[in-house]
């Protein structure tokens, strides 16, 4: 098969194909149209096919060959995996519960352990900052103690903002609760700041993607025109 196709699958053809496909997708800007949908369908098909190949090859074939030294190690995961496929048929769905239980258990443990040791502890530790300026080396441009204070305040208020609700009108609110509500509102503003940064960065990221494509289009157009003798 490869030998059969090799002579056709040249880089030049590839460039042309890629160029056309890119334009097809960009046609969406003019409005939803069948060409775009065609490209989209193609993407889904190729993407999934490629994913299947990679997973199948790299995971199942290789890993299982590693494990195949001991069939006792190889068979159970295969079995579990196949049982999982029972989920495709509602009538047999329950059969797959074992696999799901297993993988969820593993995943939960990894999530908990990772979250605890990888995020919770270090991040909390990082938030325990000294507010004493004397603890920081003197820097001309910044005020580390103030920064630390803002960080502590911001983190706490943000956390509190998740756990307060606006009191219904007329409801009595004790002083402690009032303080928490205030802190929560403040936390909300911190979240706003981080969302603003998020939005800006998101924009930046997507623009970069567009730049990449425009780069490609221009280069491809240039090359193609050269081939056609017009360049």
């Amino acid at each position: 098969m490869e030998a059969l196709l090799a002579p056709f699958l040249t880089e030049s053809l590839g460039l042309l194909v890629a160029f056309v496909l890119t334009l097809l997708v960009f046609s969406y800007l003019l409005g939803d149209n069948p060409l775009f949908r065609l490209a989209q369908a193609l993407f889904v098909g190729v993407g999934i096919g490629y994913g299947i190949i990679v997973v199948f090859h790299y995971v199942l074939m290789r890993r299982l060959s590693l494990l195949s030294a001991n069939w006792l190690l190889t068979v159970p995961p295969l079995l579990l995996g196949l049982l999982l496929w029972a989920k495709l048929w509602p009538a047999w769905s329950k059969v797959g519960n074992v696999s799901v239980a297993f993988i969820l258990g593993a995943g939960a443990a990894l999530a908990i352990g990772g979250a605890l040791f990888g995020t919770l502890v270090p991040q909390v530790r990082a938030t325990v900052l000294s507010l004493d300026p004397a603890d920081y080396p003197a820097t001309p441009d910044s005020n580390p103690a103030l920064d630390a204070g803002i960080i502590v305040l911001g983190t706490l208020c943000t956390l509190l903002s998740f756990h307060f609700r606006t009191p219904a009108p007329g409801q009595r609110v004790g002083p402690g609760a009032a303080l928490i509500h205030f802190a929560g509102r403040l936390g909300r503003y911190f979240i706003m700041i981080s969302f603003g940064a998020l939005f800006a960065n998101m924009v930046m990221s997507r623009i970069s993607l567009l730049l990449g494509r425009i780069d490609f289009l221009l280069d491809a157009a240039d090359t193609l025109l050269t081939w056609l003798g017009l360049g």
Partner: peptide, 9 residues
């Protein structure tokens, strides 16, 4: 870039 605010910590 879209990850920045949440990876910063």
């Amino acid at each position: 870039a879209g990850l920045d605010p949440y990876v910063r910590p």
